[in-house]
């Protein structure tokens, strides 16, 4: 009995010693790298204050009737209210359509990046790259104004159609049947400079030895692209698809600036419902609940996405 006790005591002592050693070594390691930790701390503090704290506040707020000043606990009411929204299905369908379209439209920057990559002349390659990146300089507002005009009754698209002999009187953004499609069409030919650059970086990083070996094995044209080069930029595709998923579910800027979610509810998306609840109704609790739901949806979609891509890789 005494032996057992002694053994236990020894084991506890050993554990305590081990913990003490670990703690000491951790503290020593922190002390040793104190400058790094010190330099990191403003960023971490900033993130806690400006990112984690608001997110946690939103989670708390989602269970309250909260007008920014007074909050009253209402349990799951805000969640129930959102989930029972008769417009919910339509806004998620809108998001789904935008999502499918945005993912598919990634093929355009992929194509452009590949074409630039295959240009034999480095000077030409440089200038094409500049050409693709240059529109970034224009403010986003100009983009919105331009597309609003293009879609207007006497705007660019109708002018083109009329010049082709089609008497187009379509109000692209003012018609429930064409508004969502018009928002998708915005930014045609959907060449996002950053996306092109990411793809281009991926193509450039492909080892020349691999391409030479493929050439020796007779790979050329489509087979070279699909069997050698495309698999090599899979990492980039994966990242961009995930970012597109997150971006599309979060985004409501286009709907807000182009149509305010209308006509009626034709271009309404959940993010805009959140924005309206916050800005027009001062319903911070309800807006928070929508935000939490969006967070969960994005998280789940990202996990599914990652799982799918991982299984396809294996």
């Amino acid at each position: 009995m005494t032996e057992i006790r002694a053994t236990r005591a020894e084991s506890t002592l050993a554990k305590t010693n081990a913990e003490g050693v670990r703690r000491k070594s951790l503290l020593r390691s922190i002390w040793k790298n104190r400058v790094l930790y010190l330099l990191l701390s403003p960023t971490i503090i900033g993130m806690i204050v400006f990112q984690y704290y608001p997110a946690l506040t939103a989670f708390w707020g989602s269970f309250h009737s909260w007008d920014g000043r007074r909050a009253r606990f209402v349990g799951l009411f805000n969640y129930e209210f959102f989930l029972e929204d008769p417009r919910l299905l339509q806004s998620w369908v809108n998001i789904l359509l935008l999502l499918i379209f945005n993912v598919l439209s990634l093929s355009m920057p992929l194509l452009i990046a590949y074409l630039i990559y295959r240009l034999p002349n480095p000077t030409h390659r440089y200038w094409y790259r500049v050409l693709v990146v240059l529109p970034i300089i224009a403010p986003g507002f100009v983009f919105i104004v331009l597309w609003r005009w293009l879609f207007s009754l006497d705007g660019g698209i109708n002018i083109i159609l009329r010049s082709l002999g089609v008497d187009s009187q379509v109000v692209w953004l003012g018609n429930a049947n064409t508004a969502l499609g018009s928002i998708m069409f915005m930014g045609f030919p959907w060449i996002d400079a950053f996306t092109v650059l990411i793809f281009l970086a991926g193509f450039i990083a492909i080892p020349t030895e691999m391409l030479d070996a493929a050439a020796v094995d007779g790979a050329s044209g489509w087979s070279r692209f699909f069997r050698i080069e495309l698999p090599q930029v899979q990492g980039q595709i994966k990242v961009l698809v995930i970012l597109t998923f997150i971006g599309t579910v979060q985004d409501f800027g286009r709907a807000l600036f182009m149509t305010r979610g209308g006509p009626g509810y034709a271009t309404m998306v959940p993010g805009l419902r959140m924005y309206n609840a916050f800005t027009q109704e001062s319903a911070y609790g309800y807006a928070s609940a929508i935000g939490v739901i969006l967070f969960i949806v994005i998280l789940v979609l990202t996990l599914i996405n990652q799982r799918l891509i991982r299984s396809s890789e294996s």
Binding site: R148, F151, V171, L173, G174, N175, G262, P263
Partner: peptide, 9 residues
């Protein structure tokens, strides 16, 4: 006719 989305400029 374009009252739902006029050219506001």
């Amino acid at each position: 006719s374009d009252w739902q989305a006029p050219d506001t400029s």
